[in-house]
Design a protein around this nucleic acid. Structure first.
Lengths: 192, 192
DNA sequence: ACCTGAACACCGTTCAAGT
DNA sequence: ACCTGAACACCGTTCAAGT
């Protein structure tokens, strides 16, 4: 039977979830799909492009959050959905971070657009709305990469119990940083 | 003559500046130093640790910015020095970003501490000061990774002139995003 | 203490040739 | 159109053995 982009991305996601990003190699993926490594290059130009497709797959649940009118609520909804999506896959935050920086994820671009619109609603001049949206995404990605590496270290049992991270209230901390940004956006609407 | 950590970091920085992070391999570095690849592992436990040392070298100029009393000015001074340091080396932002996420840069930790102190001065409760500082660093790293990749694409002549990035005022944009964060911190001092 | 030589176990990517 | 086989040009890391 023929190989389709969809199957490749599914198999790649399965490797990611089970073994992490370090084990997500073209050769390993090809083996899992019972094809030769070269076959993957018929469907994807290079590894970066494939990672972009995986990023899109991971971000699917965060793409269309129900549109709410209040821009503050909308930012919170989008960012929470984004964080949840990243935490749903092993090394998800790291993979999406890299794909976002490389400009390889369509879905990440859509989320950026949604946040830009929210920033404009907050009163940010349209010339700066995308930068404001990027600032928010930098935060969510940075925070979640950190959080996830701690969570994964913890579940791997590397830390001794007393310094376990389980006690830390990540949700509350995430909200605190997000409020910081939303407050900053709020000030702009007051000033200009 | 003997190999010292210092020489290794200097040679690595030279490769980085001349050829970029993709060419900064242990084997290539060993060749440049006229030693066998294994020799590097006497001085550094692994590549990550070496990259951390390079990050420290890059961040040197940003480590001790003159202490100014006003916390807003202090954040601006630290972040500007940080961005300047990153832009002074090819792929500097990307390398430091990775080392910061991996917790391998002493200097990045110091900068985090300085920003935490500024956040406390802004009125952020000490339990959240580090998160506030991290939020600021996520912004500077994210922004500068983006900026640098555009600058380097441009100087490589990949873009056609009409969409050249030279016209974009990066300084102004950097300041805009930074103000967003500082305004957010300012609100906290007002509320609590 | 510090380094070499040589190996181990891999990588991403390309491309003529096959079906 | 889609894939195989095989190669190209590399990686990071380890470790017995040398000095």
């Amino acid at each position: 039977m023929q190989l389709h982009k969809y199957d490749v991305v599914e198999a790649a996601t399965a490797i990611l979830d089970a073994y992490g990003i370090a084990d997500l190699t073209m050769r390993r993926l090809a083996k899992e799909l019972n094809v030769s490594p070269g076959a993957l290059y018929w469907h994807f130009a290079n590894k970066q492009q494939l990672l972009g497709a995986i990023a899109d797959r991971i971000l699917q649940p965060a793409r269309d959050v129900p549109a709410v009118t209040d821009w503050r609520e909308r930012i919170v909804a989008v960012c929470s959905a984004l964080r949840d999506a990243l935490l749903s896959h092993t090394d998800g935050a790291e993979l999406v971070s890299a794909s976002f920086a490389a400009g390889q994820s369509q879905a990440a671009g859509d989320i950026l657009t949604a946040l830009s619109a929210a920033a404009e609603d907050a009163g940010v001049p349209s010339a700066e709305a995308e930068l404001a949206a990027r600032t928010v995404i930098y935060y969510v990605l940075g925070f979640t990469v950190d959080e996830q590496s701690k969570l994964q270290w913890d579940s791997a049992g590397v830390l001794d119990p007393q310094e376990s991270v389980a006690a830390i209230d990540h949700d509350r901390r995430f909200g605190f940083g997000l409020r910081l940004l939303i407050d900053g956006l709020g000030v702009i609407s007051t000033v200009s």
